[in-house]
Amino acid sequence: MSEKKIMLEARNVDVFYGEFQAIKNIDMKIKENSVTAFIGPSGCGKSTFLRVLNRMNDYVEGFALRGEIEINGEKIYRKSVKVEELRKEVGMVFQKPNPFPKSIYDNVAFGLKIQGITDKAFIEERVINSLKQVALWDEVKDQLKKSALALSGGQQQRLCIARTLAVEPSVILMDEPTSALDPISTSKIEELLHELKKKYTIVIVTHNMQQAARVSDDTAFFYMGELIEFDKTDKIFTNPSMEKTENYITGRFG
């Protein structure tokens, strides 16, 4: 498996919010078509690092980044990179389901329409495919015109994933995507990740260590803004090389 292509590479990345250094000198390589979990206690920098990967922190006041991040061979913090283009390539799913107050159909079609695509048949095909990929199609196919806000939380989150898939990104970032959901919805989304990684590269922040163990191929443990350990998930959870990692996953702190 080691011959998999590197999709995402971070080199010497430091992140500052004003005076505060949130990320300290992180190096990381993430392979294509894999699920990578970011774990660590609250405030360890895992969410910050995730949001750096599609430049979601650009508008945060005082934000500054040093180092280099390369996704799919492109240095994403270069001046010439259009941040809007980057975010189409690197989609994001958030902690709380956040569908637009529009119909189910319009939610999934949103990204395509933003790109200026007007071919109705094309859009419809993408919408249907995306909804099928997240296993939501059978539940909503008769009510595509209904408001997305009428769906349950779990359905809303799958809709948000479908919305991201519709623009066919190469990387999907997920920021604790199941923390606001019930166990059944959570397991549906976890199943989904196994399917999705065949086509996409997935990075998921989670507070739930069992989840990280269940869904990911690789796991990164963050602590106080540093990347303490990054390895195969099996190794991290059965035989971590760092004491801090072991203390955290065995529940001694965090």
Binding site: N54, M56, Y59, R87, K88, K96, N98, V167
Partner: peptide
């Protein structure tokens, strides 16, 4: 308007005007 909606839009690659 909840911040989460705005983030959802940015996450889809909208410009500020969009």
């Amino acid at each position: 308007v909840p911040k989460s909606l705005r983030e959802a839009a940015y996450g889809m690659g909208t410009t500020r005007l969009q």
